[in-house]
Design a protein around this nucleic acid. Structure first.
Lengths: 103, 103
DNA sequence: ACTTACTGTAAGTAATGACTTACCAAACGG
DNA sequence: CCGTTTGGTAAGTCATTACTTACAGTAAGT
């Protein structure tokens, strides 16, 4: 049920840019911050939110911290979204059906 | 590319509750608002945001307005999420591979 | 026509949250 | 050791936004 924290985490544009920088592999905080229009502490705060949402994880590497995507958060989002999708389509099908009966 | 508006739209808990009330079929504004802990105008505002995000649509029915889920928004979200998922897995695979070479 | 039912909009408020600078801690290299 | 690199945290600020009440509009019923 972590989609409830994952959705707000991915709602902010710059935080999404932080997240998307990990899309093709692990990066250190400095590498992530480089090129972004916000300060490095801001990036740290975004990473904290993403981590609490189960979207990223990290491990130490000397004085640096390497962040990488944690599949857990994305998986939870996908489950919620797919379930919703199925329900919505089924509801739509049922709607068409009941409309037919009225004729 | 509407996932950029769909994500913030689904980030708010009460707005998500509004959206989820349409999960199993169309509802009028009054029906949606009934039982929710916020006022009816608040629900109207949430519906406006959801509509601008392509997540819902509506049509008139007398003095009432019936809202229903618009698959466009959900589809856009799914595309983005699936693409992200694929990239993340591929990156993970490549990471494991490059780690092997180091040994 | 006149009331009733239903909904969207305006305006104002309070809370949330994204950002900044300043500071502190930990690990590496000379 | 000591300076440098790296990154997390604290405190404060500003903008966003979710909510309220009040109002306006439109369609149906009598």
């Amino acid at each position: 049920m972590t989609y409830q924290t994952a959705l707000p985490a991915l709602a902010d544009p710059t935080r999404r840019r932080v997240f998307e920088r990990l899309r093709h592999g692990p990066r250190s905080v400095g590498e992530i911050a480089k090129g972004l229009p916000v300060s490095r502490p801001a990036v740290s705060q975004h990473l904290k939110v993403l981590k609490e949402a189960g979207l990223v994880d990290d491990h130490a590497d000397g004085t640096r911290r390497v962040y990488y995507i944690d599949p857990k958060g994305l998986a939870a989002l996908r489950r919620w979204l797919d379930q919703f999708w199925d329900d919505a389509l089924e509801a739509f099908r049922a709607e068409v059906e009941s409309d037919k009966e009225k004729e």
